[in-house]
Amino acid sequence: MTPAPSAYHQRVAQEKRALIVRAATELFLELGYDRASLARIADSAGVSKATLFKQFPTKAALFDAIVGDSWAGNDVADVPPAGDLTAGLTVLGRRYATLLGQPEMTDLFRIVIAELPRFPELARAHFSQGKLPYFETVRIYLLAERDAGTADVADPELAATQFLGMISNYLFWPSLLLPDWTVTPARTTAVVEEAVRTTVARYGAR
């Protein structure tokens, strides 16, 4: 029976994984997904090819890890309890704003957009493993509020799209085209609060 790795070896493996993911993101942006070979990524990360292949046997697996890391955190899969539409949407909106504010999120979208004509599977992976699970969290939450009688939502999918769109259209999408686009924490809070108020005004149970 193979012994479990020690805490030290687990930490070293995690540190090397982070180096690989960071190096891959930078090279995908610089060279493109196709030209950034795994060997070159290993060299840039300062790890051996054997170490890289052990964690990521294919370039697609490495890209999946970049997607997962970009969308991870902030308990994105946790659905707030139903009963207070304003409070629940505020939690979801703040989480989304935090995710979109990560520098690696902008990098990820730029990679996907740049490689879309040649590698449409990258966009599908990004959507299915990143955006879709978060979108589903919002949709399921709105369904729960409808069932609780606190929201009048005939089309939860459309309502979730509207809510998230109000946030991303100000906080995120301009940054892809305008390198100097910055949003202050106070402005971020205001954007989320306005999205919540608009959604509650439209879908809150009368």
Results as ranks from 00 to 15, higher is better:
residue 139 R to F: 07
residue 159 A to C: 03
residue 140 I to E: 13
residue 129 Q to A: 15
residue 127 F to A: 11
residue 138 V to Q: 04
residue 124 R to G: 12
residue 152 D to F: 10
residue 159 A to N: 09
residue 125 A to V: 13
residue 146 R to H: 12
residue 131 K to E: 01
residue 142 L to N: 04
residue 133 P to W: 02
residue 136 E to S: 06
residue 151 A to D: 04
residue 157 E to D: 13
residue 140 I to M: 11
residue 168 S to G: 03
residue 125 A to R: 15
residue 156 P to T: 02
residue 124 R to T: 15
residue 116 L to A: 13
residue 130 G to P: 05
residue 147 D to H: 12
residue 141 Y to M: 04
residue 153 V to F: 00
residue 165 G to I: 04
residue 164 L to P: 01
residue 149 G to S: 09
residue 163 F to P: 01
residue 138 V to P: 06
residue 164 L to W: 01
residue 126 H to R: 07
residue 162 Q to E: 14
residue 118 R to V: 08
residue 134 Y to I: 03
residue 153 V to C: 02
residue 119 F to R: 15
residue 118 R to L: 11
residue 141 Y to S: 05
residue 136 E to N: 09
residue 140 I to A: 14
residue 160 A to Q: 07
residue 151 A to W: 05
residue 141 Y to P: 01
residue 122 L to Y: 06
residue 140 I to W: 00
residue 151 A to Q: 06
residue 153 V to W: 02
residue 141 Y to I: 03
residue 117 P to M: 07
residue 165 G to N: 09
residue 120 P to V: 07
residue 170 Y to A: 03
residue 130 G to W: 02
residue 123 A to E: 10
residue 125 A to T: 15
residue 120 P to A: 11
residue 143 L to T: 12
residue 136 E to C: 00
residue 149 G to E: 10
residue 136 E to D: 05
residue 145 E to F: 08
residue 126 H to S: 14
residue 140 I to S: 14
residue 166 M to A: 04
residue 142 L to R: 02
residue 123 A to N: 09
residue 130 G to H: 09
residue 137 T to N: 03
residue 140 I to L: 14
residue 156 P to E: 07
residue 128 S to Q: 13
residue 131 K to P: 00
residue 143 L to C: 08
residue 130 G to D: 02
residue 132 L to R: 13
residue 153 V to E: 02
residue 118 R to M: 11
residue 142 L to Y: 03
residue 151 A to P: 08
residue 127 F to Q: 11
residue 134 Y to P: 12
residue 126 H to G: 08
residue 155 D to W: 08
residue 168 S to M: 00
residue 133 P to L: 05
residue 117 P to C: 06
residue 163 F to V: 05
residue 145 E to Y: 04
residue 136 E to T: 13
residue 160 A to R: 01
residue 161 T to H: 09
residue 150 T to E: 12
residue 131 K to C: 00
residue 148 A to P: 06
residue 158 L to I: 11
residue 169 N to T: 13
residue 147 D to W: 07
residue 143 L to N: 08
residue 142 L to Q: 03
residue 154 A to K: 12
residue 121 E to N: 14
residue 151 A to G: 08
residue 138 V to R: 05
residue 155 D to H: 11
residue 152 D to R: 13
residue 121 E to M: 15
residue 131 K to T: 10
